[in-house]
Amino acid sequence: MSGNRQPLELPQWPQYGDEERAGLIRALEQGQWWRMGGSEVDSFEREFAAFHGAEYALAVTNGTHALELALQVLGVGPGTEVIVPAFTFISSSQAAQRLGAVAVPVDVDPETYCLDIAATEAAITPRTKAIMPVHMAGHFPDMDALAKLAADKGIEIVQDACHGQGGEWQGRGYGELGSVAAFSFQNGKLMTAGEGGLVLFPNRELYEEAFLRHSCGRPRTDRKYFHQTSGSNFRMNEFSASVLRAQLGRYPAQLATRQERAELLGSLLAEIPGVVPQKHDPRVTSHPHYMQMFRIPGMAEEKRNELVDKLIERGLPAFIAFRAIYRSDGFWETGAPDETLEQVAARCPNTEAINNDAIWLHHRTLLATPEQIHQVAEIVADTLAEA
Rank of each mutant, 00 (worst) to 15 (best):
N4M: 04
N4W: 05
Q6L: 12
Q15F: 05
D18Y: 03
E19Y: 06
R21N: 10
G23D: 03
L24C: 08
F48N: 04
F48I: 15
A49Y: 06
V60M: 04
T64I: 03
L69A: 02
F89M: 01
S91H: 07
P110M: 10
Y113H: 05
D116L: 14
A123D: 03
M132K: 02
M132V: 13
H139T: 12
H139M: 11
P141V: 07
P141M: 05
D144F: 11
Q159Y: 15
G167M: 08
G171M: 12
R172V: 03
G173D: 02
L177A: 08
V180P: 02
N187W: 15
K189E: 13
T192Q: 07
G194T: 12
V199A: 07
E205Q: 08
F211Y: 08
F211T: 01
L212F: 10
H214T: 14
C216I: 03
R218S: 07
R220K: 13
T221K: 08
R223G: 03
K224V: 13
S232Q: 11
R235A: 09
R235V: 06
R235H: 05
N237E: 13
L244Q: 02
R245H: 05
A246D: 04
G249H: 13
E263I: 09
G266P: 11
G266A: 11
S267N: 07
L269I: 06
L269T: 02
V276Q: 09
P277L: 13
D281W: 09
P288N: 07
Y290P: 01
M293G: 11
F294Y: 09
A300T: 01
V308N: 09
L311W: 08
I320R: 13
A321Y: 08
A321M: 13
R323I: 07
I325N: 01
F331A: 05
D338P: 03
L341W: 12
R347T: 08
P349N: 02
N350C: 14
T351W: 00
N355D: 15
D357S: 14
T365L: 03
P370E: 04
A377V: 06
V380T: 05
A381H: 07
E386C: 04
